[in-house]
Design a protein around this nucleic acid. Structure first.
Length: 270
DNA sequence: TATCAGGCCCTAG
DNA sequence: CTAGGGCCTGAT
């Protein structure tokens, strides 16, 4: 068990922010988080956050994963106080972190996410993990599934993937997995690229367009300048920024602002 | 019953 | 280069 006091961190906001589809709320209020081939449970009371892992695992993996070395107060303070909409959104979502997730996992997850609902995305990801991922156990004997390797998905058939409920996205996942296995696109190369390079490289993959590419860059490569525009964001921009979103003011951190806006649109205060 | 969801691909003009 | 149809499935 590892315990920390963390400002501007809310595990429930992160869960609902739609970056990660492998978090699960457990009875008792803690969250099970599965990422790549790791598993941890997180429990939060105010700023006191407990992680069900050793200090070593925390330092090695989860600290970076949740982006805990970053002071999000700096991003919050950067917001134009005259911008009432963004100020309100940021107050509401101030516990959100931009996670540092696995590149391959984000590619597949956001391929699946298109024209889809959150509940079904979760189910699809769970299905392919159970079918193609390695079964793992924690020291306490809790079982979970690692995210499937590119080879495992490249070896699948379109029919099998459809059986996982992916629908027409099956061929996207299959062909993309094959492109990675064949080396046509290298994950390591993408990791080393700038945002613009990575964005363009990811667009080569079948089924990845501008929106999905931006999501992958933001959530896997931590490219905070990425600003994915989906229907919710488009609508919010039309309603609140008739003259356009002030990208210059937030240059380099637009992705953080995008998350506050997205959260606000999905969970407006009642 | 029709529509559309956290898009993208492909074809026609 | 832009517009528009097609696509799995589930929720409303």
């Amino acid at each position: 068990m590892t315990v920390r006091e963390i400002e501007n961190f809310s595990i429930s906001q992160i869960d609902r922010s739609g970056q990660c589809f492998r978090m699960k709320k457990l009875a008792g209020g803690s969250y099970a988080v599965t990422a790549a081939d790791r598993y941890v449970q997180v429990f939060q009371e105010g700023e006191k956050v407990s992680f069900s892992c050793t200090e070593q695992e925390y330092d090695e993996f989860w600290r970076q994963y949740f982006d805990l070395d970053r002071d999000y107060g700096v991003y919050l303070a950067q917001i134009d106080p005259q911008d009432e909409y963004l100020s309100r959104a940021a107050r509401r979502g101030s516990g959100i972190r931009i996670l540092r997730q696995d590149l391959w996992e984000m590619i597949v997850t956001f391929l699946i996410s298109q024209q889809n609902t959150i509940t079904r995305i979760r189910r699809c990801v769970q299905n392919i993990c159970e079918k193609y991922g390695e079964k793992c156990f924690t020291a306490e004997g809790i079982s979970y599934y690692a995210f499937p390797k590119p080879q495992a998905l490249a070896d699948a058939s379109e029919e099998e993937l459809r059986a996982c409920n992916l629908g027409y996205r099956s061929k996207y996942v299959l062909r993309t997995a094959q492109s990675i296995v064949s080396g046509e696109v290298s994950l390591d190369a993408v990791r080393a690229m700038t945002y613009e390079e990575a964005r363009a490289e990811l667009l080569k993959l079948y089924g990845i367009g501008e929106k999905v590419s931006a999501c992958i860059c933001l959530f896997a490569l931590h490219s905070l300048e990425a600003f994915p525009v989906d229907t919710h964001i488009r609508q919010a921009l039309e309603n609140h920024y008739p003259n356009g979103f002030p990208h210059e003011r937030y240059s380099g951190v637009q992705g953080v602002m995008q998350q506050y806006i997205f959260y606000q649109e999905l969970f407006p205060e009642v």
